[in-house]
Design a protein around this nucleic acid. Structure first.
Length: 426
RNA sequence: GGCGUGGUGGCCGAGUGGUUUAAGGCAGCGGUCUUGAAAACCGCCAAGGGGGAAACCCCUUCGUGAGUUCGAAUCUCACCCACGCCGCCA
């Protein structure tokens, strides 16, 4: 959530920043919010004066009762002002609910340094590795996977629908190996605390990260319990310290979680969805950091590096893209996407998104810290990165390391986890 | 799912209608003392919001919401959550 005080103080600045997102509905919403806020504050001021008078009169009643003095005429007038306060409170509550409803739909302010405009303006920050060359036409991963007997898309569709892949045999072991490889890397070398969170969460948690109220259609729901399948471990892990005040000395906090992710991907059918390119369920190792505001920019670079380390150890060439304002997610202020090269489909595939959310999520989820013992609490900054998402990484692993005979080399860092350095057709 | 018990500040915990502007303790911060530290003693110490140039003033909050009352942490109702026992179950 954006800071409503900042909006009051500098409405033009906030408007200009949000317009960089290429979303023309925001300007009208800001006008409505400013008007609601003005009305709300006027009513609050008026009502609080009335309450102060009422409270003083109520104390006078108590005093007279103790002194055994008459109170009848006071009680009569108090009844009237008490009813008035109740009506005003109801109105204020209604205004406040409207205001909150609007505010929850306003995206985060884009970081000043990122490019303006739509995704075409995304900037390549750096690239790593060299693209593999082949003396034959490299195959896409769905062909390799089928031939190797490790990926069964047809039966997955039978069980659940398209976009629910089944990994079989060495494929399943590859998934398990990737999970252990990434968790070991982040816990042992990067200092993260491993957590195994719930895969189903409530509305409050999803509102905290910014998935609700605006993106309910992207989620799988469990209606009877009013719960939702997590679209990413970011949701449960970021919410771990919701409504808490952390000690400044305990920051930064760094969490890593391995979970499946569930996404409806409504409206995405058709394009770039073959094989593992866009699926409804995929595994992911997620990194989440809670930091002091002053540290968050440096932490963002550090976090991005931790995600990159995964691809480097897997010997997968990738590029780091800084997203333009119009392509940056609702809650994020700045995002680096890691795109891995996949030789079979001949495309860069997004397999990680490393973002800083500044205080946007912390404000929604009420995650605070005390800068020093005894000091006033402030909002933390939240950050997260995939470290990394499995489906597209597996696509790249298969496609980049394929041989003419259909076998696939497993990179050295992963081989011990998978139990072999080569997958071969029967 | 059934029955029972309970939800109070960063934490523990007292509190059955008006000196509760929430006792007391722990933790934290400042001080006295000390070569330094500990102990002891003294003081400070909830969060959010509104107004104000500031000093400061005011409002709200005892799980959530509704109700009774001039007045609710306290009484009534509904809901949520936690714990215990029973039932079901990996």
């Amino acid at each position: 959530m954006i800071d409503v005080k900042l909006l009051r103080q500098d409405p033009a600045g906030v408007r200009a920043a949000l317009l960089r997102r290429e979303d023309d509905t925001v300007a009208a919403a800001l006008d409505e919010i400013l008007a609601l806020d003005r009305r709300w504050r006027d009513r609050v001021t008026e009502t609080e004066q009335l309450k102060a008078q009422r409270n003083a009169a109520t104390e006078e009643v108590a005093r007279r009762k103790r002194a055994r003095e008459p109170t009848d005429e006071l009680l009569a007038s108090l009844k009237a002002s008490s009813d008035r306060v109740k009506a005003l409170d109801a109105h204020i509550r209604e205004l406040d609910e409207q205001l909150q409803r609007q505010l929850l739909r306003i995206p985060n302010l884009p970081h000043a340094s990122i490019p303006d405009g739509p995704a075409e303006n995304n900037r390549t920050v750096r690239t790593w590795g060299s693209l593999p060359g082949f003396d034959f036409a490299p195959k896409p991963h769905w062909e390799l996977g089928e031939r190797l007997g490790i990926l069964d898309l047809v039966r997955g569709a039978k069980l659940s629908g398209s976009g629910f892949p089944v990994f079989v045999g060495a494929g399943a072991r590859l998934v398990r190996g990737l999970a252990n490889f990434m968790l070991d890397l982040h816990t042992r070398e990067h200092g993260y605390l491993e957590v195994a969170p719930p895969l189903v969460v409530n509305r409050t948690s999803l509102t905290g990260t910014g998935n609700l109220p605006k993106f309910e259609d992207d989620l799988y729901a469990v209606p009877r319990e009013d719960l939702f399948l997590i679209p990413t471990a970011e949701v449960p892990v970021t919410n771990l310290h919701r409504d808490e005040i952390l000690e400044g000395a305990d920051l930064p906090r760094a969490f890593v979680a391995f979970t499946p992710c569930f996404r409806r991907e409504a409206g995405a059918a058709g394009k770039d969805t073959r094989g593992l390119l866009r699926v409804h369920q995929f595994d992911k190792v997620e990194l989440v950091r809670l930091t002091r505001p002053d540290d968050s920019e440096a932490e963002h670079q550090l976090l991005t590096g931790h995600a990159e380390a995964v691809l480097q150890r897997l010997e997968l060439p990738y590029r780091v893209m800084e997203l333009a304002a119009g392509d940056t997610g609702f809650s994020a202020s700045r995002t680096y996407d890691l795109e891995v090269w996949a030789a079979g489909v001949g495309a860069w595939l997004e397999c990680s998104s490393a973002s800083t959310f500044t205080d946007f999520q912390a404000r929604r989820a009420n995650i605070r810290f005390r800068p020093a013992p005894g000091a006033r609490p402030e909002f933390v900054h939240t950050l997260n990165a995939s470290g990394v998402a499995f489906a597209r990484t597996i696509a790249a692993l298969l496609e980049n390391n394929q041989a003419a005979d259909g076998s696939v080399r497993i990179p050295a860092a992963l081989a011990s986890y998978v139990g072999t350095d080569r997958l071969a057709p029967d």
